[in-house]
Design a protein around this nucleic acid. Structure first.
Lengths: 245, 245
DNA sequence: TATAAAAGATGACGTAAGGTCACTTTCAAC
DNA sequence: GTTGAAAGTGACCTTACGTCATCTTTTATA
């Protein structure tokens, strides 16, 4: 049993935060003294560490609250959502990073005059690729795509394998679409497509369809796939069809 | 000259935001009508676009305010700072992404309940860094297994596929080891084993070894594989070897 | 046991960047 | 001049706490 300052030292979380978590019902002390001082135990310490972890991967306190409250929480689903979010943010930051690098280089080379003009140029480009893209994504995510891909957030191993396959494709892209490793991946995708999923709503069919129409991929919000990966996939697939035994 | 609603349509920025920018002195309208309605011009449109750009690369409105106010601003310096910040954030998100992936993988293989709290418990306040689940942080006592599986906690797509394959095996176990679906999975495992990894330390070889000695798998604690899955895998593999071609 | 000091509790206000009412005033068309 | 649309202002709300200010409880010492 610890009082609040000991608990703070054990957990590394500020007293204010502990009181706040108590207030919002996220982490209540195991009991209180007669005078109203909070008393914590090891149980609360563990729970607090879980909270800290979920916070670092980007969940809000409210989300964490409902997660830890409900006994039957769909962890896979929310973790996949979170993965989507995190991967998307990472992607966004990558683009920003290159913009800023470009700007710095431009200023270094061309000097002061470069400033306004180039900022504008960069902004216009970014506004098309980043901002506008995000707005569309948000709008569409809630309506069409979710209906189109009902099972896409499942923790089904098949879905996971699909994710793995796309990941491999990306990893080995530099080998070129005719490379045997790439062709093996494509073959597995093709086999898997025909073999594992015969129902219409299946994850793979939907994603396969999306591959066909590159435009749609922009709205594909569960697992962001870069445009170049999709293009590459298309090329590799065509090559695969041509050279099939 | 535009009134506020036209300006909103031109810029894509909400009316509330425009009024807010006016209030904090970031973007004032060129003039006001006698009745107090805001009037904007093309100059403000350009400035607003600059603001939007600076916002997307992560500057606060306050920073932008001082930037645009002072005539001689050290752009290189602040952009470099921003680059550092953005790159750092990207790095942070990368680590989070791997953590989440690993968590998902663990759940995919093992099922929801058991693993998640245990993994989350790994979060230590001591490590100010985001946890990167490498094996050292895990509570593993058998060091032999540790040495055998150097890369198994990585989010390498190859690892992901392996994980997915084991997951599928578990999922379709009930079909029996001679079922075509199972045999397909086994075949992919076998092909993958020989094909993708030729170096000794590779993930798959090591795990394949572990399949051989079922006892060791008990110490295999990052992605523990159930005993029955291992046994089943062995049976299916023997069947596969017998009936090959 | 009395008392002082330390520790804890509670409440209020502030943060960034606006969103969302509610209510009032001005503009533009007829 | 009337009227409906558009614009104005002000207040409260959001996250996850930090930072006082004031009051009460606990604890250590005389």
């Amino acid at each position: 049993m610890f009082h609040i300052n000991e608990f703070k030292k054990l957990s590394g979380v500020s007293v204010r935060t502990l009181r706040y978590y108590d207030k919002i019902g996220l982490l209540k002390p195991v009991s209180k003294t007669e005078g109203g001082h909070r008393v914590y135990s090891n149980t609360e310490l563990k729970k607090l560490q879980q909270i800290q972890f979920l916070k670092t991967i980007g969940f809000t306190l409210n989300e964490i609250l409902t997660m830890l409250e409900s006994e039957e929480w769909d962890w896979s689903n929310s973790l996949l959502k979170q993965l989507t979010y995190v991967a998307g943010e990472k992607d966004r930051l990558s683009k920003i990073e290159s913009s800023v690098r470009e700007l710095i280089n431009g200023i270094a080379i061309e000097g002061e005059e470069f400033r306004i003009k180039k900022i504008m140029d960069l902004y216009n480009r970014d506004s098309k690729e980043i901002i506008h893209f995000n707005l569309n994504e948000l709008d569409i995510k809630n309506t069409e795509v979710l209906e189109k891909l009902p099972n896409m957030a499942s923790s089904d191993p098949d879905s996971l394998e699909w994710i793995a396959l796309v990941g491999q494709l990306k990893k080995y892209m530099h080998l070129g679409y005719s490379h045997s490793r790439i062709q093996n991946i494509i073959e597995r995708m093709d086999v898997k497509k025909g073999e594992d999923f015969k129902d219409e709503d299946a994850f793979l069919d939907k994603l396969w369809d999306i591959r066909m129409s590159a435009e749609e991929s922009k709205n594909y919000s569960l697992y962001p796939i870069d445009q170049d990966v999709l293009t590459f996939m298309e090329e590799a697939y065509l090559y695969y069809l041509d050279h099939q035994s």
